[in-house]
Design a protein around this nucleic acid. Structure first.
Lengths: 345, 345
DNA sequence: TGTTCTACGTAGAACGGTGCACACTTTTGT
DNA sequence: ACAAAAGTGTGCACCGTTCTACGTAGAACA
């Protein structure tokens, strides 16, 4: 191996340099930095001038050892999902206002990697963590929550203890879809959902959407025709499943897809097999993601308000960092973005 | 404000606990951790056992003050681009093998935020940074490179000094596209590119692709018909531009789009205006992103080997961290993924 | 005038690692 | 047999902050 003397780079301006320049103590500078009590306006101004002049930036690493780092970590399972950018944007906005930075880690859909990432973030001294659609068990989450302030997005844990959950009301979203289709005259409405392999599948958003779907079908008196097809995450297999679904004799007149990704695939396959949409088949998706707005897709879709979810999670986390300990379960109402992928029965 | 005593959580196992348990000095444990010279196999094993037993994890924050953090930062401008996940995967793979963790920051397409993010990552004591398609000027990059090991992906800086660049050979990719279309009998081939507003637009990948396009058109003796339409990043405006392009009397027989996103939009608009593809218009894109493979799209597209780019960047960064200082300019060959969005003239 | 507050500022001990300088023990070389 | 070199482990200063405990001066009060 090599041995470069690393860590703090040689020329770095430290709090001592600032203190010397301003002619005050190191402690005084630290107080100014933290807006702590006990600094006169004159001293504060003096210090700020020196900071500005020297271009001083506090070392987060050093801060992490005693105080806070003003950094929060966000853990994603994967980054292909088009609704994530908005979630992140919502988090960043809410955090940025309070001077917090956001750093993202990627679990690559591997549970071990995901957990080691959490450890790593805690080791970095991050002030709190936000997990998006984690695959971990409730106990694991509780264990992490004991180590650091924690908020979870898109994960329906029934009764978290030491952390908060922020979700879109997935059941309500599904009910809106069914209601919309029923109002358009459909009675044969299927749902295409996701086959979740996990042990913790019950907390997955798709399950909440399934429940909403079933509830709404029941409320409309359509439970006999209600059916959920859970399709795999593997693209090729899934498309085969969709093809056979589309060519089956009992094909419904409308389909509610648990995500836009599935819905768009379904539309593509339907069209390429000669079907005419929406007259032959109405399709409604979930996420209201950018591709939903594309010409030739024009997918009606449930908007989760991803940005709102991110913002709410960040706000919750900040209040937790500030000392709150009682668990919160936030639920945001989704809306339906109307387009032309569905029509009358 | 509140005042929770934060920073290191109370119960945390420190290097001292490990040293006590193993009955050795703190320095010895530190040596084992860094696999530094001067530890006997016996002592090493002894220490490792205690580490395992106590579940010790070194504090990255504390490490950051003197040594390395075994963390590298990746800065993205935005995360919507579907080729980013592969780049990240490539980076993570290469880094994970050496025990490095990857943390991602998002610039939200704001230059100031992007730069403050770099600062923040340096402040965190990260061992090195990888920037993907940054919008910064060459001087700014050099300035950062003086503070930390730096590698830049997808940014055609002609002669970097203190950092490395890793690019796909964008010119070659464009030439492959033109060659493919010419071989299919096309002679009227336009390019749709991106209108870059920056001051540093010359380093943008789209410009390199434009050059390749022009070169290939020249080589094929088609310079008279060569034309580049630079379209805006704003979606609605762009679609208007595309519509008028499609309905113009001098519409070409084939179009090379600088990115799949543009290509897919173009295909959608063409189809929805009644055109028949690829007979009325051949389209080839760039990125070979997931949507390119969708039914009804089947877009022929240049594959940049995003994963390879990420891997190469990580390898370069690690060698830079290990002490290398001479600049490297890596260039990976792209390949063409053939599908049905283009056909004979 | 003496006493008690309050406001402001400072000294210095953490925090949890790293890595240099050194001491002690074996090997190796002659 | 003796010096030099190599191998192994330790003590401790240091990294750049935070934050507690304390000192001091001036204001307010009696």
């Amino acid at each position: 191996m090599n041995e470069q003397p690393r860590g703090t780079r040689p020329g770095r301006i430290t709090i001592r340099d600032v203190a010397a320049d301003a002619g005050v103590s190191v402690a005084a500078v630290s107080k100014v930095l933290r807006n702590a009590y006990g600094v006169s306006p004159a001293l504060r101004q003096n210090v700020l001038t020196s900071i500005e002049k020297l271009g001083y930036r506090p070392s987060t690493a050093a801060r992490g050892m005693r105080g806070r780092t003003f950094t929060i970590g966000v853990v994603l399972v994967e980054m292909g999902n088009p609704f994530l950018p908005d979630v992140i944007a919502g988090i960043s906005d809410a955090c940025g206002a309070d001077g917090y930075k956001v750093l993202i880690g990627l679990g690559q859909a591997q549970l071990t990697l995901e957990e080691s990432l959490l450890d790593s973030m805690i080791d970095h001294g991050m002030d709190g963590l936000i997990l998006v659609a984690p695959r971990m068990s409730g106990e694991t989450l509780e264990a992490y929550a004991r180590q650091t302030p924690l908020v979870v997005i898109a994960h329906h844990e029934p009764s978290p203890n030491a952390y908060d959950t922020v979700n879109s009301d997935d059941a309500a979203g599904a009910q809106m879809v069914v209601a919309e289709l029923v109002a358009a005259g459909h009675s044969d409405i299927a749902m295409i959902s996701l086959l979740v392999a996990d042990d913790n599948s019950q907390t997955h958003v798709s399950v909440a959407r399934e429940k909403g779907y079933l509830k709404a079908m029941g409320d409309a008196g359509l439970e006999p025709s209600a059916r959920i097809l859970r399709m795999t995450g593997d693209k090729d297999l899934r498309q085969a499943q969709m093809r056979s679904f589309l060519s089956a004799p009992d094909r419904p007149t409308a389909v509610f897809c648990w995500s836009d990704l599935f819905a768009i695939e379904l539309i593509g396959l339907a069209r390429s097999s000669g079907m005419n949409l929406p007259s032959d088949l109405s399709v409604i998706g979930y996420d209201n993601s950018p591709p939903a707005t594309m010409p030739l897709i024009e997918l009606t879709s449930v908007d989760q308000n991803a940005r709102g979810l991110g913002g709410a999670a960040a706000t919750a986390l900040l209040s937790r960092i500030a000392g709150r300990t009682n668990p919160q379960r936030l639920m945001l109402k989704p809306t339906l973005a109307h387009r032309t992928s569905h029509g009358p029965a």
